Computed example of a mutant assay.
Amino acid sequence: MDTSEPMTDEDLAEIEALANAATPGPWYVRRLDDDFAMSLVAISTAPDTGLGERWPDYDHYEIVAATLVQHPRYVDVADERWDENAQFIAEARHEVPRLIAEIRRLRELLAIADQDLGEA
Rank of each mutant, 00 (worst) to 15 (best):
V77T: 09
A90Y: 03
A65K: 01
N85H: 13
D35Q: 12
V69I: 13
D116S: 07
V75R: 14
A21D: 15
P6A: 05
D48Q: 04
A90D: 01
L106Y: 09
A21Q: 10
V69L: 11
H94M: 01
E119C: 01
A65I: 07
H71E: 11
D76A: 02
A101K: 02
V29D: 10
A101W: 06
R93Y: 08
A17T: 01
A113Y: 08
D79V: 00
E16C: 04
P47N: 06
Y58E: 08
E53D: 15
A22F: 05
L117T: 12
R105L: 01
M7P: 08
E62C: 03
A65W: 00
G118L: 03
A90R: 03
N20P: 08
M1Q: 00
I112Q: 15
D114A: 14
Y61F: 12
T23C: 00
A120Y: 05
E80P: 03
L12I: 03
V29I: 13
R54Y: 04
A111Q: 12
Q87R: 14
A86V: 04
V64W: 00
D116C: 01
A22Y: 11
A37D: 08
V69G: 07
E10I: 05
T45H: 03
L117W: 09
L51D: 10
E16F: 03
A113W: 07
Q87A: 15
I112L: 14
E53I: 01
E84V: 13
A46C: 07
A13I: 07
A37Y: 03
E102H: 11
E108F: 02
P24S: 07
R31D: 07
S39H: 05
D2C: 04
D76S: 09
F36P: 02
G25A: 00
D33M: 00
A46D: 02
W82H: 15
E91D: 14
H94P: 00
R73A: 10
G50E: 01
A120K: 07
E119N: 07
I100E: 04
F88Y: 10
E53L: 08
I112E: 14
P56H: 13
Y74I: 07
A13N: 13
Y58V: 05
L51G: 06
E10S: 06
A92F: 08
W82S: 15
E80L: 10
A46Y: 04
T45Q: 11
V77G: 11
V77S: 04
W27F: 09
L12P: 00
P47W: 01
R81D: 10
M7N: 02
A111H: 13
W55Y: 15
P47I: 06
P6L: 09
L109R: 09
L40K: 06
I43L: 00
